[in-house]
Design a protein around this nucleic acid. Structure first.
Lengths: 243, 243
DNA sequence: CCACTTTTGTTACAGCGTGTTACGTTGACA
DNA sequence: TGTCAACGTAACACGCTGTAACAAAAGTGG
């Protein structure tokens, strides 16, 4: 059995790092996140076994996020919140949360409840091997969502490196949304050690440049993978998704 | 989908009938019980989707019953108890309960939590019965789960070494999940004594390479047994399991 | 016990993916 | 138009991986 990978979503850095450290110390891989975009970036990028989702996230709302995710994903979600009234808990369960934990919480009890939800999910899905893959089409290109290559508008097969593929997935998950370099780094990072977001140099720029050289007709004048000066990069092509 | 069938286990007749009526009014079939023997009778008789299990049952103990049931069954269990201290809750989770609800409870909240647990169990469409021998099919290949050989898509019989077979089994048990070399070594090690697991060199890489040369159409461009650079290997083929 | 085959592990080397650096270019703004 | 930070990219360095060749271990049959 591989190590469980948790997504810890909270907008308070102290709470977030406290929770990630708690998880790491107890044998989990804990990936930090604070926005719905970061959640989606992680989900599109790699396996996530469970999401610990704070309800009050600045201008976002964990309940709404949970409801949206549930329409698309089966990933286990535990809501965490200082709002502990019964009607607030029920709102959480009604949008499909697997559990609802009130703050402040007993760390050991939280661990027990995480394990309970994951065990329940695993007990019944151990034989559900078929992966749900979606096919993306954009600007004549076709990406089947699983391999490290895609079909060009002319029908050729263009092979990408794994990191280029990961970047493409992040972009496809966030079309028409400007992504900062830090957000891309966080989405591409699988280790979870990066709550601090170390100096990444120009690696992302290089990665973007290399992807451009493979999928842009004229890399000097990119149509899909555009630069948002002073911000980051934005994927500006219409995407159609099939199951 | 048929109407969910719940088992309501409580030794207090008033509490039991209150709960069964609550369930019946909300679209469930609620079957009353008060002892472990009655629980087992129901489980062996017909389908039970969830058990609401009181912790204090006269001379019996819900925690112990839960622990015993868990060893044999995957049925969802929610413990209900007036004992609401954290250590008591944790004791419940530790024996495999899916949730722990304190008395007195809000009926609507209890319904929400029941639905949450059942949804989680159903979402991954329980195929939870253990089979003796499983036949795996992936990408045209057929492996009967027993022998050290498998049938190629063209119908030839390809024989694997003992260690190659073991690797294949590990991969089939963890599809679409990146496995580190350490995890593979641990899985291949049957003794389990190996916390040392040092000085394995590149043995896994060689093993993977040899398996590739036998089951990949083009070993230079592996479609099933793919490399996750900096991590390990990942089996990226859809698997169907029979029998 | 030995010769032989098969399986498994080790080493060495080449190739590739990825991050860093350096430098030229672009674009926003005064 | 001048300035400067942001960006694109070529060149390089380094680590990871695939694989051939070899060595060791584990059968196998006499």
């Amino acid at each position: 059995m591989s190590i469980p990978r948790l997504l810890v979503v909270d907008d308070d850095p102290d709470m977030r790092s406290m929770m990630t450290q708690l998880m790491q110390k107890n044998g989990f891989i804990a990936l930090p996140a604070s926005t719905e975009r970061e959640i989606r970036a992680h989900l599109s990028n790699g396996r996530i076994d469970l999401i610990l989702l704070d309800v009050m996230l600045g201008d976002e709302n964990g309940i709404d996020i949970c409801a949206r995710l549930r329409r698309e994903q089966d990933v286990p979600i535990i809501l965490v919140s200082a709002l502990s009234a019964d009607h607030q808990r029920m709102a959480g369960y009604e949008v499909g949360a697997d559990d609802y934990i009130a703050k402040p919480f007993n760390p050991q009890l939280m661990l027990a409840r995480i394990r309970a939800v994951m065990q329940r999910a695993r007990r019944s899905s151990s034989l559900a091997y078929r992966r749900r893959t979606r096919t993306f089409r954009f600007d004549g290109w076709v990406y089947d969502g699983k391999r490290d290559d895609l079909h060009s508008p002319e029908g050729y097969l263009v092979s990408l490196s794994q990191r280029e593929t990961a970047l493409l997935k992040v972009l496809l998950a966030n079309p028409h949304i400007p992504l900062t370099r830090d957000e891309i780094v966080a989405a591409l990072d699988v280790t979870g050690d990066s709550d601090k977001s170390e100096a990444q140099g120009r690696a992302i720029d290089m990665l973007v440049g290399r992807l451009r050289s493979k999928i842009e007709a004229n890399p000097k004048d990119p149509q899909m993978l555009r630069t948002e000066r002073g911000v980051g990069y934005i994927f500006g092509a219409d995407i159609s998704v099939e199951e």
